[in-house]
Design a protein around this nucleic acid. Structure first.
Lengths: 116, 116
DNA sequence: CCATCATATTCCCATATCGGCATGTGACAA
DNA sequence: TTGTCACATGCCGATATGGGAATATGATGG
């Protein structure tokens, strides 16, 4: 049994979207399916680079591939974002509270000004 | 100047929440401020481990520290999740569409069965 | 079959990252 | 001041990761 010096590889959606370039790919794919070379060129990355990122995205279910002739068209599978969406959603109420706090702060400022 | 073999370190919210343990910390903090040792114990991690994760979370603005006596109370700063929330929000419509696609698929299945 | 286009994979390097452990540091109490 | 508590930091080992370059694979056309 090997020494576990690092937590098990987090190959999930959270990990996949931690990479800016992978986020870029996903955003591009909102406009529709695209072949690899297209993506690489559009995003200024090498073809192998694009392929590697796409592999990660595919493995976590964020994109789908469809083979058309020589090409492989990659398409968005937004359902893969569900875990992220749900996790972030769990903070919704705090998100609002921070606005409340800001509001309170502003109110305090106004009051302080009036007291001058 | 060294060789840039990896993209500039992504020290942003996306990166911070890519770690399961850090997500756990944030979720725990929804219940209120907590000292480091508390968090470590509750989540079954070492004190240094907790401190390091908290440092990352602090650096990307996901938590705040408040010093009280010997202790340092860490509190949630949900506003730091805004970039993630907004990015994911950009896929809202595809999220719905995927349901539509599933629905279409199911309809197709029904039709295929009837044609047998 | 052979050449070519599109894409995937492999190898290598440099670096980032996590965990454990030991140690440093700052506040408070005796 | 000295001891202790709560926490941060430093160092190390193992591993994960991204980019570049070269190469393999797979489908298509001739």
């Amino acid at each position: 049994m090997g020494v576990m010096a690092r937590a098990a590889t987090t190959s999930d959606a959270f990990n996949a979207i931690a990479e800016p370039q992978r986020r870029d790919i996903l955003m591009l794919l909102r406009a529709g399916e695209r072949p690899v070379t297209d993506l690489a060129q559009e995003l200024g990355m090498s073809q192998p680079g694009a392929s590697k990122h796409l592999r990660v995205l595919r493995e976590v279910g964020l994109v789908r591939v469809r083979e058309v002739g020589k090409q492989r068209l990659y398409g968005l599978d937004a359902d893969g974002l569900r875990p992220v969406r749900e996790w972030v959603g769990g903070f919704e109420r705090f998100w609002n509270e921070s606005f409340d706090r800001l509001d309170t702060y502003v109110q305090d400022l106004k009051q302080a000004r009036q007291e001058d």
